[in-house]
Design a protein around this nucleic acid. Structure first.
Lengths: 348, 348
DNA sequence: GCCCTGAAGTTTTACGTATAACGTCCCGGC
DNA sequence: GCCGGGACGTTATACGTAAAACTTCAGGGC
């Protein structure tokens, strides 16, 4: 049923149909369409084949190609949340590099968010050449790979390098982001910090906590108190409000938040207590989402090179698939100072 | 190289390997794994096959299955923006229904956003059984389908029903959302509206404009002024600020925004002019993103049943693929009244 | 004049699965 | 005692492509 004796075809044309139309063999069509013709097929016949393919509207059958080659030229990008602009940027970067190498990228938002997920794949998952995973828990990644032999190549973006041996990693210099925040705040006289941390355990948040501790430890008369909140505005509000109530309202002079959403919650809590940002309390975020400039005052936060993360990750995956060594160096981040931070309020 | 003479296999086991291990034919394995065995294979042998498959870690080769059946059990969901929580919800709903039918959903964020896009597919696109498209311009959808024959089944979510003949549509009752907003505002005495509209032309925004006009036309002493802005906070700020400056600051008593992001911009513009929300100006949004409760005061807006949209869309697609008729009725939306709207300020 | 080489193709085979078409056996009805 | 027909399989084939192995021919070196 693929094609009749005459020219009229009803279903999608195959390479054989093209071959017939061009007066060559199917193999020749395959060579031309696959770009492997120089030296095997003359330029004139190649042109004839291309013309026939164009005329019939030929599109290679990917299932057949995949079956034959064993590769799909498709990578899976696993992200904890679709909504977060950081991950949107990662996708954009990865897709851009992928397209340059005739690769596709399929997105998979983990239903369980950033934490551990048990069966991360729907049963009818696509066949994949490799996995790119952003900010995922180590055991989720282990599940992602499954027990397939040989294991699917895995590149971890911004995840625990020790968590999945054999995988490649691309890391952001998150620690440096925290360093910049602390330097900025201490330069403005801040000594008492409230750390509004994520309740989700994950490497990306652990880094913040560790660096925060490491940077403040050597400073004299400096304290850090850490509280935890789910990654929603509402939860951040209540967590911050109760923390400020129990510690004396202005004991801390700055709230360092693990991400911008938490910072938005901190704003609301501070106002609910009748205090002002940044006059009474400075607040910092992390990620530089569009939310950071939607709230008032605009948020001092750390901008992450999201697209670069995705691009580097994809390049690393292509390198692995190609048996090359992936280059690995942490990507720099940048502190964006806006209106939410200022001099520390004098102690009452 | 698929398997040695002994038990040790190095590559992925095939159905033939399972057959050998279970002492049956490959066809029997296919029947059992495909769930078509009742009446063709006895329960005891079926169990033996399943055990062997489990033991060897057999996973059917999707490329081969796709090649054989001509179907991929995969749908593509095209969205204009990854970041928007509405589309994230649509994905969640679609993926949930898909999983129930052993279908997969692949996300494709259109690089050009909501407007027309020229070549929406990367060259190495996956093979697809159908397309679900959310809030896309009509000509983008035409391009999406390409000139393949037969055309890929297409379900449009929240797009112009007249734009793509032959496609199925699932629509939100956006007009009713606008009606609720206007009813709410007029009940509070508002008569002069500023409509902060999207600069992107699209059916979803046209509906708002049309309904706004239709609802306010019959009211006495009522005016609507429309201004346009790109869908970013920054652009909304400048557009609103200049509009208010040229029209007399409080001539309008309410700003009706096409979405929540624009509303966030309106907040900032209003404050920049020394006015208060909602005392001097009421502001409404559309979508009920998390941003709506992050800004202060919290935003009065219209909540859309995003997951339901995705779920209905997927069900419609499955119906089309099954040659059944898809049920079609607009999904209801709900006005969420928060702190950004109040009584109209008295005219100066 | 012969062999070798390279260009320009073609023939053939394999990828792993789903399924149509074909046995074979056993049992029950008449 | 024979025949029909389920139950339980098996055998064979096709899906569309990529690529290894083969063929043919022309030209050139010696």
């Amino acid at each position: 049923m693929t094609s009749g004796q005459d020219g009229t075809t009803t279903a999608r044309p195959t390479s054989r149909d093209v071959a017939r139309a061009a007066g060559v063999s199917q193999a020749a069509v395959s060579l031309v369409m696959g770009g492997k013709w120089p030296g095997r097929v003359s330029e004139t016949t190649a042109e004839r084949v291309r013309a026939a393919a164009e005329r019939l509207g030929y599109r290679p059958n990917l299932a057949a190609r995949n079956l034959r080659t064993g590769r799909t030229r498709t990578a899976l990008l696993v992200v904890p949340a679709l909504t977060n602009e950081f991950f949107a940027g990662v996708y954009t970067g990865a897709a851009r590099v992928a397209a340059q190498h005739d690769f596709g990228v399929v997105l998979y938002p983990s239903p369980d968010g950033i934490g551990p997920a048990r069966d991360p794949f729907p049963s009818a998952r696509a066949a994949l050449d490799g996995i790119l995973a952003s900010s995922m828990a180590a055991d989720t990644l282990t599940n992602l790979r499954g027990d397939d032999t040989p294991p699917i190549p895995l590149v971890m973006l911004d995840s625990d390098p020790a968590g999945n041996p054999g995988a490649t990693t691309v890391n952001l210099d998150l620690a440096d982001g925290i360093r910049q925040i602390i330097d900025h705040l201490t330069a403005h006289g801040h000594r008492n910090f409230l750390h509004l941390a994520s309740a989700v355990e994950s490497w990306t948040f652990d880094v913040r906590a560790r660096e925060l501790a490491a940077r403040t430890a050597p400073l004299p008369d400096t304290t850090v108190r850490t509280i935890h909140s789910a990654l929603t505005v509402e939860d951040a509000v209540t967590a911050t409000e109760t923390a400020l109530r129990t510690s004396g309202l202005t004991e801390p002079t700055a709230i360092v938040c693990d991400d911008d959403k938490l910072a938005a919650g901190a704003y609301k809590a501070v106002r609910r207590l009748g205090l002002r940002v940044p006059d009474d309390l400075s607040i910092t975020g992390f990620d530089d989402l569009s939310l950071a400039t939607a709230i008032e005052p605009e948020l001092t936060t750390v901008r992450l090179p999201a697209e670069e993360v995705g691009a580097h990750g994809m390049r690393a995956l292509l390198a692995v698939l190609d048996d090359r060594e992936a280059e690995t160096a942490p990507l720099p981040v940048e502190l964006i100072v806006r209106g939410s931070t200022g001099p520390a309020a004098p102690r009452p």
